[in-house]
C-alpha cells in the first residue's frame, strides 16, 4: 500500500471541501472494498477522507411510502432493522447476503453504491426499486446514478447522504454466487410497485442494468412463464474464468423467473 494523507472531517461541508481541494483524494466509509484496493495498489489516492465522524449520514427512517437509509449505515444494521423488515423486507435480505458477517459489520450502503462494483448487490436493489440517491448537492435517480464499471454520476466533492427506496408491492432478489468469492456471478432483482415493474441485473455486465422487455412482459402478467423465453443477448455480457457470456445470459432468464416466483410467494 502506498502512503497517503489522512483526514477525518467533522462535517459534510468540510468533507466536501477537502474532496474538492485535494487532488486524487478518496472518501472512505467502511472501507471493505477500499482497503483491499489500496493493498493491491488498484487505488493509489494521495489522501483518504474518512467519513466515520459524520453521524448525520447514519440511520434508517420510514418517510411516507419510502424507506430512507443514511449512506453510512452498515449492511448488518440494514439486515437487522425492524423498520426495513416490516416495510421493505427484500432490502434486509439483500443486505444480509452481502459478503460475510464481518464485512457487513463495516461495509456501508453509500460506500457500496459509490464503488459500483459490477458484481455488487446494492446497485441491483437501487435500480430494481427505482430508488433515489440524495447527495450533498442533489437527488439522483438510480437510473442515472450507475454509469459504468466502477463509475457513477457522482462529481468531485459530491458526497452521498442517503438513499430513498420506495416500498414495493412485492419484490425479490436472487443471486447465483460464485462458490469461491461468494460474489454474484449473476444477481436479479425484481419488483412491482404501484403497477410499475422493474428487473435489474448485477454481476452479468460491466455495470448493473435493467431488462426492459422482461419488465414489459411482467407488467402484463407477473408470472415466471411470462419471461421464460426472454433472453438478454450474450454480446455485451461478461465472460471470464468464472463463467462465459452465454452462461450468464442463460442465468439471467433462470434467476429472473426464480425472483418472480419468490416475489409472488413473498419469500
Amino acid at each position: 500500500m502506498y502512503a497517503f494523507e489522512y483526514h477525518r472531517p467533522s462535517s459534510i461541508k468540510e468533507a466536501a471541501s477537502l474532496a474538492r481541494k485535494l487532488a486524487d483524494a478518496k472518501l472512505i466509509a467502511g472501507g471493505q472494498s477500499m482497503v483491499p484496493a489500496l493493498k493491491l495498489r488498484l487505488a493509489r489516492p494521495t489522501a483518504m477522507i474518512d467519513l466515520n465522524d459524520l453521524p448525520e449520514l447514519r440511520g434508517i427512517s420510514v418517510v411516507g411510502t419510502n424507506v430512507v437509509i443514511g449512506a453510512l449505515t452498515r449492511h448488518a444494521e440494514v439486515a437487522a432493522s425492524k423498520d426495513v423488515l416490516m416495510t421493505l423486507p427484500v432490502l434486509a435480505k439483500v443486505a444480509a447476503g452481502i459478503g460475510d458477517h464481518q464485512v457487513r459489520n463495516m461495509g456501508t450502503l453509500g460506500g457500496a453504491i459509490a464503488n459500483n462494483d459490477p458484481a455488487a448487490d446494492y446497485p441491483a436493489a437501487l435500480l430494481g426499486l427505482g430508488a433515489t440517491v440524495t447527495t450533498n448537492k442533489r437527488d439522483i435517480p438510480a437510473d442515472k446514478f450507475f454509469t459504468g464499471m466502477y463509475e457513477t454520476a457522482l462529481k468531485p466533492g459530491e458526497i452521498i447522504a442517503s438513499v430513498s427506496f420506495p416500498m414495493a408491492k412485492r419484490a425479490a432478489y436472487i443471486k447465483f454466487r460464485n462458490p469461491a468469492s461468494r460474489f454474484a456471478l449473476v444477481g436479479v432483482f425484481v419488483s412491482e410497485t404501484a403497477g410499475n415493474v422493474r428487473v435489474a441485473v448485477t454481476g452479468a455486465a460491466p455495470c448493473v442494468f435493467r431488462v426492459k422487455n422482461m419488465e414489459k412482459a411482467l407488467a402484463s402478467k407477473f408470472a415466471p412463464e411470462a419471461i421464460a423465453r426472454i433472453r438478454v443477448p450474450a454480446d455485451n455480457l461478461n465472460s471470464d474464468l468464472h463463467a462465459g457470456a452465454e452462461y450468464r445470459s442463460h442465468l439471467i432468464t433462470v434467476l429472473a423467473q426464480r425472483a418472480v416466483e419468490a416475489a409472488l410467494s413473498g419469500k
Binding site: 489522512y6 472512505i28 472501507g31 471493505q32 482497503v35 483518504m48 474518512d50 464481518q102 459489520n105 463495516m106
Partner: peptide
C-alpha cells in the same frame, strides 16, 4: 470493534 466482529486486516487503524 465496539462489540461487532470485524476483520482487522481490512481496516485502517485510523478507522
Amino acid at each position: 470493534l465496539n462489540g461487532r466482529a470485524v476483520k482487522a486486516c481490512n481496516l485502517l487503524t485510523a478507522q
